[in-house]
Simulated assay, not measured.
Amino acid sequence: MITFHPTLPVVVLVLAAIALAVCGWQLATGRGRRLAWLRRSLLVLLAVAMAFRPAVPGGEVPTATIQARVFIMVDTSQSIAAEDWGSEPRLVGMQEDVVEIARAFAGADLSVISFDSEAILRVPLTDDGSAIIEMVRALRPEIAQQSRGTSVTIAHDLLKAELERTEAAEPDSPAIVFYLGDGEHTAQQPPQSFDDVAPLVDRGLVLGYGTQQGGRMRVSSFDPAVQEQYLQDPGGGDAISRIDEAQLGAIADQLGITYLHRAPGLPITDALGPMAAADGEANLDRTEEARLEVAWIFGVPIALLLAWEGLSLARSLRATRGFLSREGAR
């Protein structure tokens, strides 16, 4: 069964009604351009369908009542592509752990911040655990060509601002921070301290991914052919990324929370259970249906229609220039 979770539904419907009214008027009065206005009407309908965020059942998530603000910070730099989570990239381990965090804190307000050469608030605080899981499953390493070096503390200001803002709105709700990364700092500036953030954090974990032996990294790129290649070291050979546990331990100390090294097959539920239990009961036996959003499906026909629209516009411009040239030659 398809469900919908629209963003700003009233605004979307009003704009869609106006756009469809214009298209309908052009269809009724226009001559020789009916196909173009039919195409534009279809574009509007597809855009509305995407904005209403259709979803199908996507498994189950546990229900619970936990009063807490949970901030999940996820490293998305090129190094999380390093293949030392067993034989898979570190990102796989991070995604698995975020699922467990969302399960353990089901019912709490959760937020996701990603960081690489910049910090981005991916998901503001929400009690929709499935939205958190969907977002993190969609995360990919930063495009290698766009990277300007990664600071392990680049999310400092964003995290502090979110903690202060949400504490003002929910002063009785404890703040729990999960920092997921490999500690690899490649920015020129030294890492900023989280000491001033610690008073805003009640508890949490710094979770470290990677090994001392390190792993090769497939290139993160828009080009599918390049994605099959491994990042090269300027000195020759494949570049190797290694975990920096000293850096991760320092971040944990600054935040006043615990550092925990992660590895495949090593459960994290034992560490999460007591933290969640401190703020409420998470009943993992009682579940509700999760949503798997399928709005992306509409992206393909929208892209094709936009390409058609662009081609039609280009032809019209060429025809207009040709007409003007002939008129000028007379």
Rank of each mutant, 00 (worst) to 15 (best):
H5C: 09
L8P: 10
P9M: 04
V10M: 11
L13P: 03
L15Y: 00
A16E: 05
A16W: 05
I18Y: 03
I18E: 04
A19Y: 00
A21Q: 02
V22I: 09
G24N: 06
G24D: 04
W25C: 07
A28C: 08
A28E: 02
T29R: 15
G30H: 08
G30M: 13
R33P: 10
R34F: 12
W37V: 10
S41K: 07
L42D: 03
L43W: 14
V44G: 01
L45Y: 14
L46W: 09
V48W: 15
M50A: 14
A51V: 06
F52A: 08
V56H: 09
V56L: 15
P57I: 15
V61D: 08
T63E: 11
T63I: 03
I66Q: 09
Q67G: 12
F71G: 03
I72Q: 00
D75I: 01
S77H: 03
Q78G: 13
Q78M: 14
E83P: 10
D84Q: 10
E88F: 02
Q95P: 09
E96Q: 12
V99T: 15
V99N: 13
I101R: 05
I101Q: 08
A102V: 01
D109W: 11
I113E: 04
S114F: 04
F115E: 01
L121R: 04
R122Q: 15
P124C: 13
P124L: 12
L125H: 02
L125D: 04
T126Q: 07
D127L: 08
D128C: 05
D128I: 02
D128F: 00
M135Y: 12
A138C: 10
A138D: 15
P141C: 01
E142P: 08
S147H: 05
S147G: 11
A155L: 13
H156T: 11
L158I: 10
E164K: 10
T166Y: 06
E167A: 11
E167K: 12
E167H: 10
E170N: 13
Y179Q: 04
D182V: 09
A198C: 06
V201G: 01
G204S: 06
L205I: 06
Q213T: 14
R216I: 00
R218M: 02
F222Q: 14
D223M: 01
P224K: 06
Q229P: 10
G237A: 03
D238E: 13
D238A: 14
I240D: 08
S241C: 13
S241V: 14
S241A: 14
S241M: 09
I243P: 09
Q247S: 12
Q247E: 12
G249F: 03
G249H: 01
I251D: 02
Q254H: 04
R262E: 04
P267N: 07
T269F: 09
L272I: 02
G273M: 10
M275F: 03
D279A: 12
G280K: 00
E281P: 07
T287Y: 02
L292I: 09
E293C: 04
E293V: 04
V300D: 11
V300S: 10
L305D: 07
L306V: 10
A307G: 10
W308N: 01
E309S: 05
E309D: 05
L311Y: 13
L313K: 03
A314E: 03
F323S: 13
F323G: 14
L324T: 13
R326S: 14
R326T: 11
A329V: 12
A329M: 15
